[in-house]
Design a protein around this nucleic acid. Structure first.
Lengths: 129, 129
DNA sequence: CTAGTTGCAAAGAGTTTGCATGGCG
DNA sequence: CGCCATGCAAACTCTTTGCAACTAG
């Protein structure tokens, strides 16, 4: 668990929370944060993921692990929709998500975990392409 | 595209299709198929993924890329539910999936791609733990 | 036959780790 | 001050690739 709020950890959190709708891999973060070493990036990403401040996400066909900021509980209970074209993340509110997943639970007896599930597809803005 | 059905490719397909409800990474496959080299495993996994016979899947917290067999079109149009406890995959039939995702499309204007989306959670059998 | 495929080993890419130094609380 | 965190570089793990030998059709 992280105990000290170091300059590096703060820079990382600031950066990710300022771009909460995007995902980044360690290399991209290290590039954006010039004075944070690669190992500090990796170590902090792991620590912050364990604390629940970040979430690990899939980026189609990528070999690198990507992370995304998950505000304290801004995303609590809501479902994530990720656009494969623009890579942006959209949120489905808790009520809608609950209704949707309740259907799966009743139909299949399968309890979907909103925190781990991401719906991939194409968002409204990208549907023209 | 694969043109020759070599001993190695056949062994790989046989193995994955015989365990179609499980996922495997290259290392596990190479270990199970003693007389198939690692490079043949990687090359065939890539080729078979391109042909649509395999699908690339996420395994929580894993660094290795995992694959799963996807029969000809047995999974066509259905949504995948993956249990985090037993790692098994369940299928939601096409009709149910369509109904479910249609809701998202209408509510959020987001077109979910069933081929890329996996719902993570806990299956009926594992809910006791 | 002959083009696709394999095995090996070396190269590459991404991530982790040991250790001395630095800095938060 | 003490302990955690950092930076660097080396170690590691997973994956890709070059090349000569092999083999399916």
């Amino acid at each position: 668990m992280s105990q000290y709020m170091t300059r590096q950890r703060k820079a990382l959190l600031d950066y990710l929370s300022a771009h909460a709708d995007e995902t980044f891999c360690a290399r991209e973060i290290a590039a954006a944060l010039a004075d944070v070493s690669a190992s500090a990036v990796y170590r902090n990403l792991a620590a912050l993921e364990a604390e629940g401040k970040l979430r690990r996400v899939e980026r189609s066909g990528a070999r690198e692990t990507a992370y995304q900021y998950v505000g304290a509980d801004a995303c609590k209970g809501c479902l994530h929709l990720k656009c494969k074209k623009c890579n942006r993340t959209f949120h489905m509110d808790a009520a809608g998500a609950e209704a949707l997943l309740g259907v799966v639970e009743r139909a299949e007896g399968f309890a979907v975990d909103k925190a781990d599930t991401v719906l991939y597809g194409v968002c409204e803005l990208c549907q023209d392409d």
